[in-house]
Design a protein around this nucleic acid. Structure first.
Length: 689
RNA sequence: GCGCCCGUAGCUCAGCCCGGAUAGAGCGUCAGACUCCGGAUCUGAAGGUCCCGCGUUCGAAUCGCGGCGGGCGCACCA
């Protein structure tokens, strides 16, 4: 809570241990006591020492406590419980320090590349993608808050089978089950593509994603009944890859490839719009087609071959494939067939293979680079429709050739000293393969700089699936949750959930304001707050069994609870000023807080300050563990402490000036903390609720 | 079969990394809250074999081993 305090305390413990017993102390952990009355910091070192010294921890603590040489902000120390040494801060002095200017964090050398979102550009985004994007985005904010330079990439698999599936749906609509509906969807999709990069007159951007969603589900069901369609998919895929590789295509092939390119490009715009709604942005859109075009794979392939990491299989089930052998590797122990195909027998590269090349590039060891251009999404006025994650540049995408590329940004992207891949836990195996490939290609040091940020999926409760009218089998119904499936059309679309949240927020506002509708943006802010808190409050290795009632909750441990706390805090300052009283403390008054009577900072008031003091360590812990939920829980703790204070420590009605000053000071710390933490969480705070 | 994850209050989850202070929240239920900074709030109550067993330890929700139940992986899909 006080910069440098932790270090001082650690040093004091070490010194005392040496002096008293001549032993080096075990690691010094600083905890926060469960209640204010028990102090501000707890040292459980006596428990550790008990093992070495073979004496009861309580006795050790009683000897240790008075022997510690501590900085002056520590007012007193006590021994609690079985042997905790608890420290109590000089409250006025500590509070004055917390009110002091904090300044920007010292810059950390290097660059962190965070890759997230990565939605297949063939249909609307669903709530699982929201979890990915929100987790990634909050992580980006946390890193930046800690002084790290961050680059955000959203990888586009624009040459994959999923895109080919929808292309097949458009071209062969007549052959699908329910041809009538399929044809209508195909026609609708074409109107979108025709007016790209703008929406057709009277249509909404998201309509394209929705139409693709439905058509994709139809295609998925049709494959099961019509083998011919599978051939069409294969041909489409080949055409798409051929186009990327610069082959000259003709007739139907050329048409399919052009359609696929346009479709992916247009659907990505839908995703960017959806993410923009919740405040998520990117710096670069790397495209798989460019990875193919620039032969990134060839380069990676050479390295792998030179290092003996891959070989051409001559017989067995993988005959004709280039394979990476994984048996014997510790991580892959016990696997029945631990070999991974990188190049198929028909010569095409697997997704894993391409990912290896992309990963090498992100880590800065591939040796070749993309060209870059602003993303092709522009407003009717010709301005970029999307900007970089920090809003200071246009959004860029990769490009294969220098023609039309922006020379000013050449070499700007990739080459991360740390690379974080936000990808759900189901892809742990391929992620491990990619990392192993990087290692074996001769870059063990680079492999260590690459991190798979794994999180559990968002699934649907059977009730949620029912609520959407999705037919479930009896088997599904007996499960605790069912996985979403684009192919089955089973899932909750991100925009649909957002719409419902906005609608509910609007109703709530009106219910509280005597029917007056909220001004533009307010209901949206509340909706985004609710969504972001919901998506981040669970541990990342916990499956979210999506439930509408929980996601739409505005009371209790929710985003609106946090927003309300922040709004209330700001309100008090506003009211103070409206009554001719002083609101926020200026620098001089903040300094004077150190001289307040400590009795004015009673436990009730101090509790919230103490909680706010944990912000920095929480941010550090999030960065270290990649556990974003810690930050939401911290925010909720601050909010709860504040709301409690609100009812017990009136400020406008404070009995005297000194009391009011003490409370204003505490309030100022809370307001600043909430603003900071909600900013990092990306939870917007409206002027009013 | 092998690997990873989950199992804590009626429900949804913290706490487990790093063993220690009466196991904490929210929702739901019940009972309350000032003519005074917004009731999206607050106060209180009821509610727990921390999945089971064995072990380690002065001490286990937390560490180890063995089970049980559930989920997810283990493609020339991504």
């Amino acid at each position: 809570m006080i910069p440098g305090l932790k270090k001082d305390v650690e040093a004091a413990v070490q010194e005392a241990c040496q002096r008293l017993w001549g032993v080096p102390p075990p690691r010094v952990v600083l905890e926060t006591p469960p209640k204010v009355e028990l102090g501000d910091l707890a040292l459980p070192v006596a428990f550790e020492l008990a093992k070495v010294l073979k004496r009861p921890p309580r006795k050790i603590a009683e000897e240790l406590a008075p022997a510690l040489v501590l900085p002056a902000v520590v007012a007193r120390r006590t021994v609690e419980g079985g042997g905790y040494v608890n420290l109590f801060l000089d409250r006025p002095r500590a509070l004055a320090r917390m009110l002091g200017p904090s300044g920007p964090p010292p810059a950390v050398p290097g660059k962190t590349v965070v890759e997230h979102t990565n939605i297949n550009p063939n249909k609307a985004a669903h709530i699982g993608h929201l979890r990915n994007a929100v987790l990634g985005d909050v992580l980006v904010h946390v890193f930046r808050r800690l002084g790290r330079k961050v680059e955000v990439q959203n990888y586009l698999d624009d040459t994959g089978v999923q895109v080919a599936d929808v292309v097949v749906g458009i071209l062969r609509a007549e052959e699908l089950i329910d041809p009538h509906r399929a044809s209508a969807l195909a026609a609708e999709i074409r109107t979108y593509l025709d007016s790209f990069p703008h929406d057709p007159p009277g249509a909404e951007t998201r309509g394209l994603g929705d139409a693709c969603w439905d058509l994709y589900a139809l295609v998925g069901r049709s494959y099961a009944q019509d083998q011919g369609l599978e051939d069409a998919r294969r041909e489409t895929l080949r055409a798409v890859e051929g186009a990327a590789l610069g082959e000259t295509l003709h007739g139907a092939e050329a048409e399919a490839a052009a359609l696929a390119g346009k479709l992916a490009e247009a659907v990505v715009r839908c995703h960017l719009k959806t993410m923009e709604r919740i405040g998520v942005g990117y710096d670069l859109l790397p495209r798989e087609s460019d990875i193919l075009a620039l032969h990134f794979w060839s380069r990676a392939f050479e390295r792998l071959k030179a290092a003996g990491a891959t070989h051409l299989e001559t017989h067995g089930k993988n005959a004709g494939c280039w394979v990476m052998r994984l048996e014997g590797a510790k991580e892959f122990e016990g696997m029945e067939d631990a070999d991974k195909v990188l190049v198929r027998s028909n010569g095409t590269v697997t997704y894993t293979g391409k990912d290896v090349a992309y990963q090498l590039w992100k880590l800065g060891v591939l040796g070749i680079d993309f060209e870059y251009e602003p993303a092709p999404y522009v407003t009717p006025f010709g301005d970029p429709e999307f900007v970089s994650s920090e809003g200071d540049a246009p959004l860029y995408r990769t490009r294969k050739d220098p023609t039309g590329a922006d020379p000013a940004v050449r070499g700007r992207f990739g080459g991360g000293t740390t690379v974080i891949n936000v990808i759900d836990v189901r892809q742990s195996y391929p992620q491990k393969v990619v990392k192993e490939a990087v290692r074996r290609a001769g870059y063990p040091e680079a492999a260590d700089r690459s991190v798979h940020f794994a999180y559990e999926m968002v699934a649907l409760t059977p009730a949620a699936a029912d609520a959407m009218g999705v037919p479930l089998t009896d088997e599904d119904r007996a499960r605790p949750f069912v996985e979403m499936s684009g192919r089955r059309g089973l899932g909750v679309k991100a925009d649909d959930l957002l719409d419902r949240l906005v609608e509910k927020a609007r109703e709530q506002v009106m219910a509280r304001s005597g029917g007056e509708p909220p001004e533009p943006g307010r209901a949206e802010a509340i909706a985004v707050g609710a969504l972001r808190a919901y998506m981040t409050r669970f541990s990342r290795n916990k499956v979210i069994a999506f439930d509408f009632d929980e996601a739409l909750a505005f009371e209790g441990d929710t985003g609106p609870y946090l927003q309300y706390a922040s709004v209330r805090a700001a309100n008090i300052f506003r009211k103070l000023e409206a009554q001719g009283l002083t609101g926020r403390l200026d620098e001089a008054e903040a300094a004077s807080v150190a001289d307040l009577d400590p009795a004015l900072l009673d436990d009730g008031l101090w509790d919230v300050v103490r909680t706010c003091g944990r912000t920095q360590e929480t941010l550090e812990k999030v960065a270290e563990t990649l556990e974003v939920s810690l930050l939401v829980r911290h925010a909720l703790a601050v909010g709860a402490a504040f709301h409690h204070l609100y009812h017990t420590h009136p400020i406008l009605q404070a009995e005297d000036e000194a009391t009011r000053r003490a409370r204003r000071a505490a309030l100022q710390v809370v307001a600043a903390t909430l603003e900071e933490v909600l900013g990092v969480l990306g939870v917007p705070v409206p002027d009013r609720m």
